[in-house]
Design a protein around this nucleic acid. Structure first.
Length: 475
RNA sequence: GGUCCCAUCGUCUAGCGGUCUAGGACGUGGCCCUCUCAAGGCUAAAACACGGGUUCGAUUCCCGUUGGGACCGCCA
Protein backbone atom coordinates (compact mmCIF):
# COMPACT_ATOMS: atom_id res chain seq x y z
CA UNK A 1 0.00 0.00 0.00
CA UNK A 2 2.68 2.47 0.97
CA UNK A 3 4.72 1.86 -2.13
CA UNK A 4 2.00 2.16 -4.71
CA UNK A 5 3.18 4.53 -7.44
CA UNK A 6 1.44 7.90 -7.46
CA UNK A 7 2.39 10.46 -10.07
CA UNK A 8 0.90 13.69 -11.28
CA UNK A 9 0.81 16.04 -14.23
CA UNK A 10 0.56 19.60 -12.95
CA UNK A 11 0.05 22.12 -15.73
CA UNK A 12 -0.63 25.75 -15.06
CA UNK A 13 -3.65 26.99 -17.00
CA UNK A 14 -1.94 29.98 -18.57
CA UNK A 15 -2.06 28.52 -22.05
CA UNK A 16 -3.21 25.55 -24.10
CA UNK A 17 -1.85 22.07 -23.60
CA UNK A 18 1.34 22.18 -25.60
CA UNK A 19 3.64 19.56 -27.04
CA UNK A 20 6.03 19.59 -24.11
CA UNK A 21 3.31 19.37 -21.50
CA UNK A 22 1.65 16.56 -23.38
CA UNK A 23 4.87 14.58 -23.36
CA UNK A 24 5.32 15.14 -19.64
CA UNK A 25 1.77 13.98 -19.06
CA UNK A 26 2.38 10.98 -21.30
CA UNK A 27 5.51 9.86 -19.46
CA UNK A 28 3.67 10.23 -16.17
CA UNK A 29 0.80 8.17 -17.41
CA UNK A 30 2.99 5.45 -18.89
CA UNK A 31 4.90 5.16 -15.64
CA UNK A 32 1.68 5.00 -13.61
CA UNK A 33 0.09 2.39 -15.85
CA UNK A 34 3.23 0.28 -15.94
CA UNK A 35 3.28 0.13 -12.17
CA UNK A 36 -0.48 -0.12 -11.79
CA UNK A 37 -0.22 3.20 -10.00
CA UNK A 38 -2.31 6.31 -9.83
CA UNK A 39 -2.08 9.22 -12.25
CA UNK A 40 -3.30 12.53 -10.89
CA UNK A 41 -4.18 15.70 -12.76
CA UNK A 42 -3.53 18.83 -10.75
CA UNK A 43 -4.17 22.31 -12.04
CA UNK A 44 -1.60 24.77 -10.74
CA UNK A 45 -3.62 27.94 -10.94
CA UNK A 46 -2.14 29.90 -8.06
CA UNK A 47 -1.23 32.67 -10.48
CA UNK A 48 -4.76 33.99 -10.50
CA UNK A 49 -3.89 36.85 -12.80
CA UNK A 50 -2.88 34.60 -15.67
CA UNK A 51 -4.91 31.45 -15.12
CA UNK A 52 -8.27 31.05 -16.84
CA UNK A 53 -11.04 28.50 -16.83
CA UNK A 54 -10.88 28.41 -20.62
CA UNK A 55 -7.33 27.14 -20.49
CA UNK A 56 -8.28 24.53 -17.92
CA UNK A 57 -10.94 23.31 -20.31
CA UNK A 58 -8.49 23.37 -23.21
CA UNK A 59 -5.93 21.34 -21.28
CA UNK A 60 -8.50 18.76 -20.31
CA UNK A 61 -9.78 18.60 -23.85
CA UNK A 62 -6.25 18.13 -25.17
CA UNK A 63 -5.56 15.32 -22.74
CA UNK A 64 -8.79 13.58 -23.58
CA UNK A 65 -8.08 13.84 -27.29
CA UNK A 66 -4.67 12.29 -26.75
CA UNK A 67 -6.18 9.55 -24.62
CA UNK A 68 -4.21 10.58 -21.55
CA UNK A 69 -6.55 9.48 -18.81
CA UNK A 70 -6.04 10.38 -15.18
CA UNK A 71 -7.33 8.60 -12.12
CA UNK A 72 -7.74 11.45 -9.64
CA UNK A 73 -8.54 15.10 -10.10
CA UNK A 74 -8.47 17.52 -11.69
CA UNK A 75 -7.58 19.24 -8.44
CA UNK A 76 -7.29 22.99 -8.41
CA UNK A 77 -4.81 24.68 -6.15
CA UNK A 78 -7.01 27.73 -5.81
CA UNK A 79 -9.38 25.50 -3.87
CA UNK A 80 -6.64 24.71 -1.40
CA UNK A 81 -5.32 28.11 -0.38
CA UNK A 82 -6.14 27.56 3.30
CA UNK A 83 -3.99 24.47 3.40
CA UNK A 84 -0.95 26.27 2.00
CA UNK A 85 -1.41 29.15 4.39
CA UNK A 86 -1.41 26.76 7.33
CA UNK A 87 1.86 25.27 6.18
CA UNK A 88 3.39 28.70 5.69
CA UNK A 89 2.27 29.80 9.14
CA UNK A 90 3.75 26.71 10.63
CA UNK A 91 7.10 27.42 8.99
CA UNK A 92 7.06 30.98 10.29
CA UNK A 93 6.18 29.79 13.79
CA UNK A 94 9.04 27.35 13.72
CA UNK A 95 11.44 30.02 12.53
CA UNK A 96 11.92 28.27 9.20
CA UNK A 97 10.36 31.13 7.32
CA UNK A 98 10.20 34.87 7.93
CA UNK A 99 8.33 37.98 6.92
CA UNK A 100 9.89 40.07 4.19
CA UNK A 101 8.92 43.72 3.87
CA UNK A 102 10.83 44.49 0.69
CA UNK A 103 8.52 45.70 -2.03
CA UNK A 104 8.34 44.09 -5.42
CA UNK A 105 9.71 47.32 -6.91
CA UNK A 106 12.70 47.41 -4.59
CA UNK A 107 13.44 43.77 -5.32
CA UNK A 108 13.25 44.39 -9.04
CA UNK A 109 15.57 47.40 -8.77
CA UNK A 110 18.11 45.33 -6.84
CA UNK A 111 17.95 42.61 -9.43
CA UNK A 112 18.60 45.14 -12.19
CA UNK A 113 21.54 46.48 -10.30
CA UNK A 114 22.96 43.02 -9.70
CA UNK A 115 22.62 42.20 -13.38
CA UNK A 116 24.32 45.44 -14.38
CA UNK A 117 27.21 44.79 -12.02
CA UNK A 118 27.43 41.17 -13.03
CA UNK A 119 26.70 40.01 -9.49
CA UNK A 120 24.71 36.87 -8.71
CA UNK A 121 21.02 37.62 -8.85
CA UNK A 122 19.82 36.61 -5.41
CA UNK A 123 17.81 38.00 -2.54
CA UNK A 124 20.26 39.62 -0.15
CA UNK A 125 18.44 38.38 2.95
CA UNK A 126 18.01 41.77 4.52
CA UNK A 127 14.72 40.84 6.23
CA UNK A 128 16.07 37.52 7.41
CA UNK A 129 16.92 38.62 10.92
CA UNK A 130 14.31 41.35 11.28
CA UNK A 131 12.79 41.33 14.77
CA UNK A 132 10.06 43.88 14.50
CA UNK A 133 7.37 44.11 11.88
CA UNK A 134 7.52 47.14 9.62
CA UNK A 135 4.32 49.05 10.18
CA UNK A 136 1.99 49.77 7.32
CA UNK A 137 3.47 47.15 4.98
CA UNK A 138 1.89 43.80 4.22
CA UNK A 139 4.81 41.38 4.22
CA UNK A 140 5.49 38.39 2.00
CA UNK A 141 6.73 35.20 3.60
CA UNK A 142 10.15 33.91 2.68
CA UNK A 143 11.58 30.50 3.33
CA UNK A 144 14.77 30.54 5.37
CA UNK A 145 17.12 28.50 3.20
CA UNK A 146 20.05 26.84 4.95
CA UNK A 147 23.34 28.50 4.08
CA UNK A 148 25.73 25.70 4.85
CA UNK A 149 26.24 22.37 3.24
CA UNK A 150 24.73 21.15 0.04
CA UNK A 151 21.59 19.54 -1.28
CA UNK A 152 21.71 16.45 -3.41
CA UNK A 153 19.09 15.64 -6.00
CA UNK A 154 19.05 12.01 -6.95
CA UNK A 155 17.39 12.06 -10.33
CA UNK A 156 16.21 8.98 -12.21
CA UNK A 157 17.35 10.54 -15.47
CA UNK A 158 20.14 12.96 -14.64
CA UNK A 159 21.73 10.98 -11.83
CA UNK A 160 23.20 12.61 -8.75
CA UNK A 161 23.19 16.41 -8.93
CA UNK A 162 24.64 18.44 -6.09
CA UNK A 163 23.90 22.07 -5.25
CA UNK A 164 25.68 24.23 -2.71
CA UNK A 165 23.09 25.58 -0.29
CA UNK A 166 24.56 29.06 -0.37
CA UNK A 167 23.45 29.22 -3.98
CA UNK A 168 19.83 28.66 -3.04
CA UNK A 169 17.65 31.71 -2.71
CA UNK A 170 15.34 32.50 0.18
CA UNK A 171 12.27 32.08 -1.93
CA UNK A 172 8.91 33.66 -1.34
CA UNK A 173 6.34 31.09 -0.35
CA UNK A 174 3.46 33.45 0.45
CA UNK A 175 2.81 36.66 -1.43
CA UNK A 176 2.03 39.85 0.43
CA UNK A 177 -1.61 39.32 -0.50
CA UNK A 178 -1.53 36.00 1.31
CA UNK A 179 -1.65 33.77 -1.74
CA UNK A 180 0.88 30.95 -1.99
CA UNK A 181 3.53 30.59 -4.68
CA UNK A 182 4.53 27.64 -6.78
CA UNK A 183 7.44 26.28 -4.77
CA UNK A 184 5.28 25.98 -1.67
CA UNK A 185 2.17 24.61 -3.32
CA UNK A 186 4.03 22.04 -5.34
CA UNK A 187 5.69 20.62 -2.24
CA UNK A 188 2.59 20.75 -0.07
CA UNK A 189 0.46 19.10 -2.72
CA UNK A 190 2.98 16.45 -3.61
CA UNK A 191 3.15 15.57 0.07
CA UNK A 192 -0.60 15.81 0.53
CA UNK A 193 -1.37 13.74 -2.54
CA UNK A 194 1.28 11.20 -1.59
CA UNK A 195 3.18 11.62 -4.84
CA UNK A 196 5.96 9.04 -5.02
CA UNK A 197 7.60 10.13 -8.27
CA UNK A 198 7.85 13.67 -9.53
CA UNK A 199 8.17 13.49 -13.31
CA UNK A 200 8.49 16.87 -14.98
CA UNK A 201 10.54 18.94 -17.43
CA UNK A 202 14.17 19.57 -16.59
CA UNK A 203 13.48 23.29 -16.48
CA UNK A 204 12.54 22.42 -12.89
CA UNK A 205 15.83 20.79 -12.01
CA UNK A 206 17.19 24.01 -10.51
CA UNK A 207 14.09 24.37 -8.36
CA UNK A 208 14.41 20.89 -6.98
CA UNK A 209 17.02 21.53 -4.27
CA UNK A 210 14.90 24.40 -2.94
CA UNK A 211 11.89 22.14 -2.84
CA UNK A 212 13.90 19.42 -1.14
CA UNK A 213 14.76 21.92 1.59
CA UNK A 214 11.07 22.66 1.93
CA UNK A 215 10.33 18.95 2.31
CA UNK A 216 12.98 18.75 5.00
CA UNK A 217 11.70 21.81 6.85
CA UNK A 218 8.24 20.31 6.82
CA UNK A 219 9.61 16.98 7.91
CA UNK A 220 8.40 14.97 4.97
CA UNK A 221 9.88 12.19 2.93
CA UNK A 222 11.39 13.27 -0.36
CA UNK A 223 9.89 11.68 -3.48
CA UNK A 224 11.85 10.31 -6.41
CA UNK A 225 12.53 12.77 -9.20
CA UNK A 226 12.76 12.35 -12.96
CA UNK A 227 13.57 15.45 -14.98
CA UNK A 228 12.79 15.07 -18.66
CA UNK A 229 14.91 16.90 -21.21
CA UNK A 230 13.34 19.82 -23.00
CA UNK A 231 11.84 19.87 -26.46
CA UNK A 232 13.52 22.39 -28.74
CA UNK A 233 12.61 24.12 -31.98
CA UNK A 234 14.70 23.84 -35.14
CA UNK A 235 16.89 26.70 -33.91
CA UNK A 236 17.60 24.74 -30.71
CA UNK A 237 15.76 27.24 -28.60
CA UNK A 238 13.07 26.00 -26.28
CA UNK A 239 9.98 25.14 -28.30
CA UNK A 240 7.53 28.02 -28.43
CA UNK A 241 4.77 29.54 -30.53
CA UNK A 242 7.21 31.14 -32.90
CA UNK A 243 8.29 27.67 -34.02
CA UNK A 244 4.83 27.10 -35.42
CA UNK A 245 2.07 24.91 -34.06
CA UNK A 246 2.79 23.85 -30.50
CA UNK A 247 -0.63 23.26 -29.03
CA UNK A 248 -2.08 19.80 -29.06
CA UNK A 249 -5.40 20.98 -30.42
CA UNK A 250 -3.61 22.58 -33.37
CA UNK A 251 -2.47 19.11 -34.38
CA UNK A 252 -5.97 17.78 -34.00
CA UNK A 253 -7.14 20.55 -36.31
CA UNK A 254 -4.42 19.79 -38.83
CA UNK A 255 -5.70 16.26 -39.19
CA UNK A 256 -3.24 14.36 -37.04
CA UNK A 257 -4.25 11.18 -35.27
CA UNK A 258 -3.78 11.20 -31.49
CA UNK A 259 -1.91 7.91 -31.57
CA UNK A 260 0.54 9.32 -34.09
CA UNK A 261 1.28 12.33 -31.91
CA UNK A 262 1.68 10.10 -28.86
CA UNK A 263 4.05 7.85 -30.77
CA UNK A 264 6.08 10.80 -31.98
CA UNK A 265 6.25 12.41 -28.55
CA UNK A 266 7.34 9.28 -26.77
CA UNK A 267 10.23 8.80 -29.16
CA UNK A 268 11.42 12.31 -28.45
CA UNK A 269 13.81 11.40 -25.70
CA UNK A 270 12.94 7.78 -25.21
CA UNK A 271 13.83 4.75 -27.27
CA UNK A 272 13.41 1.03 -27.31
CA UNK A 273 16.18 -0.32 -29.51
CA UNK A 274 15.40 0.34 -33.14
CA UNK A 275 11.63 0.24 -32.83
CA UNK A 276 9.82 3.29 -34.15
CA UNK A 277 6.14 2.41 -34.05
CA UNK A 278 4.46 1.30 -30.83
CA UNK A 279 1.00 0.39 -29.68
CA UNK A 280 -0.14 1.91 -26.39
CA UNK A 281 0.21 -1.48 -24.74
CA UNK A 282 3.80 -1.75 -25.90
CA UNK A 283 4.53 1.71 -24.57
CA UNK A 284 3.24 0.80 -21.14
CA UNK A 285 5.16 -2.46 -21.19
CA UNK A 286 8.47 -1.14 -22.51
CA UNK A 287 8.70 2.31 -20.99
CA UNK A 288 11.68 2.88 -18.73
CA UNK A 289 13.56 5.89 -17.47
CA UNK A 290 16.76 4.01 -18.17
CA UNK A 291 16.16 4.63 -21.83
CA UNK A 292 15.16 8.25 -21.52
CA UNK A 293 17.98 10.36 -22.92
CA UNK A 294 19.53 13.27 -21.10
CA UNK A 295 19.86 15.64 -24.02
CA UNK A 296 17.19 18.02 -25.26
CA UNK A 297 15.50 17.00 -28.50
CA UNK A 298 14.59 19.06 -31.55
CA UNK A 299 10.98 18.77 -32.60
CA UNK A 300 10.84 17.47 -36.16
CA UNK A 301 7.48 18.04 -37.86
CA UNK A 302 8.46 15.90 -40.87
CA UNK A 303 8.90 12.80 -38.84
CA UNK A 304 5.61 13.42 -37.08
CA UNK A 305 3.98 13.75 -40.49
CA UNK A 306 5.49 10.45 -41.57
CA UNK A 307 4.25 8.73 -38.43
CA UNK A 308 0.82 10.18 -39.01
CA UNK A 309 0.80 8.74 -42.52
CA UNK A 310 1.78 5.37 -41.08
CA UNK A 311 -1.07 5.49 -38.60
CA UNK A 312 -3.49 6.47 -41.34
CA UNK A 313 -2.34 3.57 -43.48
CA UNK A 314 -2.78 1.16 -40.62
CA UNK A 315 -6.10 2.45 -39.29
CA UNK A 316 -9.33 0.61 -40.10
CA UNK A 317 -11.06 2.45 -42.94
CA UNK A 318 -14.29 2.59 -40.95
CA UNK A 319 -12.53 4.55 -38.21
CA UNK A 320 -11.00 6.95 -40.70
CA UNK A 321 -14.34 7.41 -42.42
CA UNK A 322 -15.81 8.59 -39.13
CA UNK A 323 -12.86 10.81 -38.34
CA UNK A 324 -12.73 12.43 -41.76
CA UNK A 325 -16.32 13.64 -41.80
CA UNK A 326 -15.70 16.90 -39.91
CA UNK A 327 -12.89 17.60 -42.33
CA UNK A 328 -15.17 16.92 -45.31
CA UNK A 329 -17.49 19.53 -43.89
CA UNK A 330 -14.63 21.92 -43.41
CA UNK A 331 -13.50 21.41 -47.00
CA UNK A 332 -17.06 22.11 -48.14
CA UNK A 333 -17.31 18.69 -49.68
CA UNK A 334 -20.40 17.81 -47.71
CA UNK A 335 -22.93 19.89 -45.81
CA UNK A 336 -22.81 20.25 -42.05
CA UNK A 337 -25.54 17.75 -41.29
CA UNK A 338 -25.49 15.88 -44.55
CA UNK A 339 -25.98 12.14 -44.22
CA UNK A 340 -23.13 10.09 -45.62
CA UNK A 341 -23.14 6.41 -46.53
CA UNK A 342 -20.44 5.27 -44.10
CA UNK A 343 -19.84 1.92 -45.78
CA UNK A 344 -19.35 3.57 -49.14
CA UNK A 345 -17.14 6.25 -47.59
CA UNK A 346 -15.01 3.56 -45.99
CA UNK A 347 -14.50 1.93 -49.38
CA UNK A 348 -13.43 5.29 -50.80
CA UNK A 349 -11.09 5.81 -47.84
CA UNK A 350 -9.41 2.46 -48.49
CA UNK A 351 -8.26 3.72 -51.88
CA UNK A 352 -6.85 6.91 -50.40
CA UNK A 353 -5.45 6.05 -47.01
CA UNK A 354 -1.97 5.22 -48.21
CA UNK A 355 -1.93 8.48 -50.15
CA UNK A 356 -2.91 10.90 -47.41
CA UNK A 357 -0.61 12.04 -44.65
CA UNK A 358 -3.30 13.88 -42.67
CA UNK A 359 -7.06 13.80 -42.35
CA UNK A 360 -7.15 17.12 -44.16
CA UNK A 361 -5.37 15.60 -47.14
CA UNK A 362 -7.65 12.61 -46.94
CA UNK A 363 -10.73 14.80 -46.98
CA UNK A 364 -9.46 16.94 -49.82
CA UNK A 365 -8.61 13.95 -51.99
CA UNK A 366 -12.04 12.48 -51.35
CA UNK A 367 -13.67 15.36 -53.21
CA UNK A 368 -14.05 13.68 -56.61
CA UNK A 369 -15.81 10.71 -55.07
CA UNK A 370 -18.56 13.11 -54.04
CA UNK A 371 -18.64 15.63 -56.85
CA UNK A 372 -18.13 15.84 -60.60
CA UNK A 373 -15.03 17.86 -61.43
CA UNK A 374 -15.89 21.55 -61.36
CA UNK A 375 -13.21 22.09 -63.96
CA UNK A 376 -10.35 20.21 -65.56
CA UNK A 377 -6.74 20.81 -64.75
CA UNK A 378 -5.63 22.89 -67.72
CA UNK A 379 -2.50 20.99 -68.64
CA UNK A 380 -4.16 17.66 -68.04
CA UNK A 381 -7.11 18.51 -70.26
CA UNK A 382 -4.83 19.72 -73.05
CA UNK A 383 -2.82 16.55 -72.92
CA UNK A 384 -5.55 13.95 -72.47
CA UNK A 385 -8.94 15.36 -73.39
CA UNK A 386 -8.33 15.68 -77.08
CA UNK A 387 -9.35 14.19 -80.43
CA UNK A 388 -6.80 11.44 -80.13
CA UNK A 389 -8.69 9.97 -77.20
CA UNK A 390 -12.22 10.75 -78.31
CA UNK A 391 -12.90 7.35 -79.83
CA UNK A 392 -11.38 5.56 -76.87
CA UNK A 393 -13.51 7.45 -74.36
CA UNK A 394 -16.64 6.95 -76.42
CA UNK A 395 -15.97 3.26 -76.69
CA UNK A 396 -15.35 3.00 -72.96
CA UNK A 397 -18.58 4.87 -72.25
CA UNK A 398 -20.44 2.29 -74.34
CA UNK A 399 -18.79 -0.73 -72.76
CA UNK A 400 -19.32 0.56 -69.26
CA UNK A 401 -22.99 1.35 -69.79
CA UNK A 402 -23.57 -2.19 -71.00
CA UNK A 403 -21.37 -3.85 -68.40
CA UNK A 404 -23.16 -6.55 -66.46
CA UNK A 405 -20.64 -6.99 -63.69
CA UNK A 406 -19.95 -3.46 -62.45
CA UNK A 407 -17.14 -4.43 -60.12
CA UNK A 408 -13.43 -3.74 -60.07
CA UNK A 409 -12.86 -7.06 -61.83
CA UNK A 410 -15.58 -6.41 -64.40
CA UNK A 411 -14.24 -2.94 -65.08
CA UNK A 412 -10.73 -4.26 -65.45
CA UNK A 413 -11.99 -6.73 -68.05
CA UNK A 414 -13.44 -3.86 -70.05
CA UNK A 415 -10.12 -2.04 -70.04
CA UNK A 416 -8.18 -5.17 -70.90
CA UNK A 417 -10.38 -5.78 -73.89
CA UNK A 418 -9.98 -2.18 -74.97
CA UNK A 419 -6.20 -2.10 -74.81
CA UNK A 420 -5.90 -5.44 -76.57
CA UNK A 421 -8.18 -4.34 -79.35
CA UNK A 422 -6.25 -1.14 -79.91
CA UNK A 423 -2.87 -2.56 -78.90
CA UNK A 424 -2.22 0.31 -76.58
CA UNK A 425 -0.81 0.52 -73.09
CA UNK A 426 -3.11 0.87 -70.14
CA UNK A 427 -1.79 4.32 -69.42
CA UNK A 428 -2.98 5.53 -72.80
CA UNK A 429 -6.56 5.06 -71.72
CA UNK A 430 -6.27 5.32 -67.95
CA UNK A 431 -4.98 8.88 -67.95
CA UNK A 432 -7.71 10.38 -70.17
CA UNK A 433 -10.29 8.59 -68.05
CA UNK A 434 -8.68 9.85 -64.87
CA UNK A 435 -8.90 13.42 -66.10
CA UNK A 436 -12.51 12.90 -67.13
CA UNK A 437 -13.49 11.49 -63.76
CA UNK A 438 -11.38 13.45 -61.32
CA UNK A 439 -10.39 16.55 -63.25
CA UNK A 440 -6.71 15.80 -62.77
CA UNK A 441 -3.98 13.26 -63.39
CA UNK A 442 -3.58 11.93 -59.87
CA UNK A 443 -5.84 9.38 -58.24
CA UNK A 444 -5.97 5.83 -56.93
CA UNK A 445 -6.20 2.94 -59.38
CA UNK A 446 -8.61 3.82 -62.15
CA UNK A 447 -10.77 0.68 -61.76
CA UNK A 448 -11.38 1.44 -58.11
CA UNK A 449 -12.22 5.04 -58.86
CA UNK A 450 -14.73 3.99 -61.51
CA UNK A 451 -16.24 1.43 -59.21
CA UNK A 452 -16.62 3.75 -56.24
CA UNK A 453 -17.89 6.71 -58.20
CA UNK A 454 -20.56 4.38 -59.53
CA UNK A 455 -21.90 3.75 -62.98
CA UNK A 456 -24.23 6.70 -63.18
CA UNK A 457 -21.71 9.36 -62.25
CA UNK A 458 -18.96 7.67 -64.24
CA UNK A 459 -21.00 7.68 -67.43
CA UNK A 460 -22.07 11.25 -66.80
CA UNK A 461 -18.51 12.41 -66.33
CA UNK A 462 -17.24 10.48 -69.35
CA UNK A 463 -20.05 12.00 -71.39
CA UNK A 464 -19.13 15.43 -70.23
CA UNK A 465 -15.50 14.89 -71.14
CA UNK A 466 -16.55 13.67 -74.57
CA UNK A 467 -18.70 16.76 -75.00
CA UNK A 468 -15.83 18.92 -73.94
CA UNK A 469 -13.57 17.40 -76.57
CA UNK A 470 -16.22 17.79 -79.25
CA UNK A 471 -16.89 21.35 -78.12
CA UNK A 472 -13.25 22.31 -78.19
CA UNK A 473 -12.78 20.73 -81.60
CA UNK A 474 -16.04 21.06 -83.53
CA UNK A 475 -15.85 18.41 -86.23
C1' G B 1 27.15 37.34 -14.36
C1' G B 2 26.07 32.89 -10.95
C1' U B 3 24.26 27.84 -10.60
C1' C B 4 22.83 23.48 -13.01
C1' C B 5 22.11 20.25 -17.23
C1' C B 6 23.64 18.45 -21.99
C1' A B 7 26.95 16.93 -26.46
C1' U B 8 26.78 10.08 -32.09
C1' C B 9 24.57 11.52 -39.39
C1' G B 10 20.60 17.95 -41.05
C1' U B 11 16.81 15.74 -37.23
C1' C B 12 15.10 11.62 -33.63
C1' U B 13 18.11 7.90 -31.85
C1' A B 14 20.95 2.53 -31.03
C1' G B 15 25.52 1.96 -28.57
C1' C B 16 25.99 0.77 -21.57
C1' G B 17 35.53 -0.73 -23.07
C1' G B 18 37.06 -4.82 -27.69
C1' U B 19 31.05 -7.32 -31.54
C1' C B 20 31.89 -0.10 -34.73
C1' U B 21 35.15 -0.42 -41.72
C1' A B 22 29.33 3.11 -35.73
C1' G B 23 23.16 0.33 -36.55
C1' G B 24 17.87 2.01 -37.28
C1' A B 25 14.17 5.93 -38.45
C1' C B 26 12.67 10.80 -40.76
C1' G B 27 14.28 13.84 -44.61
C1' U B 28 17.36 13.95 -49.32
C1' G B 29 19.40 11.46 -54.15
C1' G B 30 19.20 6.99 -57.35
C1' C B 31 17.02 2.32 -58.92
C1' C B 32 12.89 -1.26 -58.95
C1' C B 33 7.55 -1.94 -59.00
C1' U B 34 3.78 0.74 -61.96
C1' C B 35 -2.48 3.22 -65.39
C1' U B 36 -0.97 8.57 -62.59
C1' C B 37 0.16 9.61 -57.53
C1' A B 38 1.22 7.22 -53.37
C1' A B 39 2.55 2.96 -50.61
C1' G B 40 6.32 -0.78 -50.75
C1' G B 41 11.34 -2.87 -51.86
C1' C B 42 16.58 -2.04 -52.82
C1' U B 43 20.43 1.49 -52.65
C1' A B 44 23.62 6.07 -51.90
C1' A B 45 25.47 10.36 -49.38
C1' A B 46 25.47 11.72 -44.18
C1' A B 47 27.76 11.56 -37.31
C1' C B 48 31.11 9.68 -32.48
C1' A B 49 32.55 18.60 -31.13
C1' C B 50 37.89 19.32 -29.63
C1' G B 51 42.19 18.39 -26.34
C1' G B 52 44.26 15.72 -22.53
C1' G B 53 44.33 11.52 -19.49
C1' U B 54 42.83 6.08 -17.56
C1' U B 55 43.44 1.42 -20.15
C1' C B 56 46.63 -3.65 -23.79
C1' G B 57 42.32 -1.14 -26.13
C1' A B 58 38.02 4.20 -26.11
C1' U B 59 31.97 6.42 -29.31
C1' U B 60 31.70 4.11 -24.53
C1' C B 61 35.26 6.00 -18.07
C1' C B 62 37.67 10.81 -15.88
C1' C B 63 39.27 16.04 -16.48
C1' G B 64 39.42 20.40 -19.30
C1' U B 65 38.02 23.45 -23.66
C1' U B 66 34.33 24.78 -26.93
C1' G B 67 29.33 24.86 -28.12
C1' G B 68 24.07 24.50 -26.86
C1' G B 69 20.18 24.75 -23.18
C1' A B 70 17.64 25.69 -18.46
C1' C B 71 17.06 28.34 -14.00
C1' C B 72 18.27 32.63 -11.05
C1' G B 73 10.09 36.39 -10.40
C1' C B 74 5.40 38.47 -4.68
C1' C B 75 5.29 33.04 -12.97
C1' A B 76 4.71 28.00 -12.91
Amino acid sequence: MTDIVRVRFAPSPTGFLHIGGARTALFNMLFARQHSGVFILRIEDTDTTRSTDEYIEAIIEGMKWLGLSWDEGPFRQTARFDIYRDYADRLVREGKAYYCYCSAEELEARRQEATAQGRPIMYDGRCRELREPVPGIAPAVRFRMPRDGSTVVNDMIKGVVEFDNDQLDDLIILRSDGTPTYNLTVVVDDVDMKITHVIRGDDHLNNTPKQIQLYKALGYEIPAFAHLPMILGADKARLSKRHGATSVTAYADMGYLPDALINYLVRLGWSYGDQEVFTREELIRYFSFEHVGKAAAVFNPEKLLWLNSQYIINSPAEDLAALVIPFLVRENIIGKDEAVDRAWLARAVVTLQERAKTLIELAASLRYYFHDPASYDEKAAAKFLNDKNLALLTELHESLSGLGDYSTAGIEAVFTALIEKHTIKLGAIAQPVRVALTGGTVSPGIYEVIEIIGREATLRRLGRAIDTIRGTNPA
